[in-house]
Design a protein around this nucleic acid. Structure first.
Ligand SMILES: [Mn+2]
Ligand SMILES: [Mn+2]
Ligand SMILES: [Zn+2]
Ligand SMILES: [Zn+2]
Lengths: 138, 138
DNA sequence: AGAGATCATGCAACAGAAGTGCATTTAATG
DNA sequence: CATTAAATGCACTTCTGTTGCATGATCTCT
């Protein structure tokens, strides 16, 4: 049983061939990925399977979904210690308007916001847009 | 020349019948609207016209686009003094997970975030999700 | 090991949003 | 009024997300 298989197993996700491939693919990238990104990475991949795999991964706390403002859902592996399911790991995300890549800034948490009392805050999403490190130095 | 016509004219937007209707519709609501919302509000409206009207409104600083995490673009009228075009008016938005409505919290600005120097921040989007005032008291 | 149940995958099809091209209508200008 | 530019309507396309159902794979229990 490999490391990846153990990881999936720990999260009660059956480590099938496809799931292991998807997990490894996401682990190999340091940016968030869209469903289409995975689809393009594996010629022989079925969109629906990928879709449902990401759903499963998200439900089991293996990945978290990211709204980066492009209206295309992105996903990224949860870092060890990121307990999305329990009480939101409110780190922020950076979206590069040049290369269109989105990254997790896991060390940077969303500051607490004082809202009018009538609002009940349950979750928050903060995305900074601009130029990423790869695109700024060239 | 009515107030609305003057407003559009000031922003170099020709005040056509449809544009005036759309403007008034958005002004009558205190929530952000999606393209489909406008489409449903006017039986006889052409989706493309609405689409391009919103584009024009946005370019001319009459409305601003909102990414509330639903992957559906919303739009809201800019408040007087909101100069989105020049240097982003970084107020935050609230999205109610119960009634699915999104509102501008124009008084609440996005706090400044210290990023690693390699990132060049140009814009930011902060959405709080939870239960809105209408949905919390019942 | 074999039978039955459960879960994962593949295939097809659909819904909704976003966007484009082009013809036609409407409005501005001299 | 004639010319020109802008706005609208219509048709069509692309892309993302989503569901239903049949089939294939895996687990469980005897
Ligand atoms: Mn993240
Ligand atoms: Mn707003
Ligand atoms: Zn970049
Ligand atoms: Zn609500």
């Amino acid at each position: 049983m490999t490391e990846v298989e153990k990881t999936l197993d720990n999260k009660s996700v059956r480590p099938t061939a496809m799931r292991i491939l998807i997990y490894k693919f996401m682990a190999s990238k340091n940016t968030a990925v869209a469903l289409t990104d995975i689809e393009n990475a594996f010629e022989k991949a079925e969109r629906t399977t990928l879709y449902r795999t990401l759903k499963t991964f998200e439900e089991k706390g293996i990945v978290h979904q990211i709204d980066d403002g492009t209206n295309i859902s992105k996903f990224a592996l949860c870092q060890p210690g990121c307990n999305c399911e329990i009480d939101q790991d409110l780190h922020l995300h950076f979206h590069c308007s040049h290369c269109d890549k989105t990254v997790c800034l896991t060390e940077h948490k969303i500051p607490h916001i004082n809202l009018p009392a009538v609002y009940i805050a349950e979750d928050a999403n903060l995305v900074i847009k601009g130029i990423c490190d790869s695109c700024s130095d060239h």
